[in-house]
Design a protein around this nucleic acid. Structure first.
Length: 280
DNA sequence: AAAAGGGACAACCGCATAGAA
DNA sequence: ATTCTATGCGGTTGTCCCTTT
């Protein structure tokens, strides 16, 4: 027998999210923390199904998400990990905590697959080495990062929305209770930045008790079950901050962390990786 | 300047799985 | 032990925007 839909399809809105919806969702999550997605549409008045809310949050609104072009290093990591793990985007994303699985998947499908195919056809024998050399460990900063981080997006979005509609025309109960104070505070106190750091801090404090643990990162890490969150969303830092981070690391994690901070010895590590992949 | 095509990204769909009842 | 529900994941599609003709 077929499973019933995750939510009542009647009256469910689909398609792109509006700034208003984003704000409602963010405000709600700041208040209650991520998780219990089923209750989100009900409690916020959003005409979205729970899955849609979760996806919007994890792929776009969640703090710590880095948007924009992938750095050569990130690219290299994706290539390595894809070779190692296959299309396990969530697992791969767990090594790139600032990127979402959706982002990585899209990037792979639109950029890397072609790139690798091309280099494959160009010179089959050397392609992998070339890819490695060109894509990874050149820790040059990619200055072509053209589109804004989610923080910046939402900041702009909030400002724009507040200007455009000082009184929300679609106030929900939740919105009525929360929006005025909250959004004003957001903008007043952080004129140039939406306070995701604050938001993140608040729920990490408030929800470290469990909700957050089995949400996005938790699940993603579960496949590489090390019992720890090696990668924490940590703003704009590159992964090397994670060096100080933590406990038992798998070989892959060690390698990735080391690779982040060093540019040498990569090929040696790569061969280790290959050995490992053969074992898997 | 306008139209067409292609690329990039956001979002949806359906299946799998874990946990609760 | 079984059924049901909620959530997560990967594949796919839809839409917007940019480039080319």
């Amino acid at each position: 027998m077929g499973r019933p839909p995750c939510c009542d399809k009647i009256g469910i809105k689909k398609g792109p999210w509006t700034p208003e919806e984003d704000i409602i969702l963010v405000s709600y999550i700041q208040e209650h923390g991520p998780g219990n997605w089923r209750s989100v549409p009900t409690n916020t008045g959003l005409l979205r199904c729970s899955k849609s809310c979760r996806l919007r949050w994890t792929n776009y609104l969640r703090p710590g998400i880095k948007r924009g072009n992938f750095t050569p290093h990130e690219e290299g990591m994706i290539i390595h990990l894809q070779a190692l793990l296959g299309n396990k985007w969530a697992s791969i994303a767990s090594y790139l905590p600032q990127r979402t699985d959706n982002d990585i998947k899209n990037y792979w499908n639109t950029h890397l697959k072609k790139k690798l195919n091309k280099s494959d056809s160009d010179e089959r024998s050397r392609s992998e080495n070339i890819a490695l050399q060109t894509s990874s460990t050149r820790n040059t900063i990619n200055h072509r990062s053209t589109y804004a981080s989610s923080t910046e997006n939402i900041s702009r979005l909030l400002e724009g929305w507040m200007r455009a509609s000082p009184k929300s025309s679609t106030s929900t109960t939740f919105l009525e209770h929360k929006m005025q104070n909250r959004t004003n505070n957001f903008i007043d106190h952080h004129s140039d930045q939406f306070p995701y750091e604050q938001l993140q801090g608040s729920w990490e404090e408030g929800h470290s008790k469990g909700i957050n643990g089995d949400d996005d990162q938790g699940i993603k890490n579960s496949e590489n079950n090390n019992g720890d969150d090696v990668h924490h969303e940590d703003g704009d830092h590159e992964d090397d901050d994670d060096h100080n981070a933590t406990p038992p690391l798998t070989f892959i994690e060690k390698w990735l962390l080391e690779e982040t901070s060093t540019t040498g010895g990569q090929m040696e590590e790569m061969s280790h990786l290959m050995e490992l992949s053969n074992m898997l």
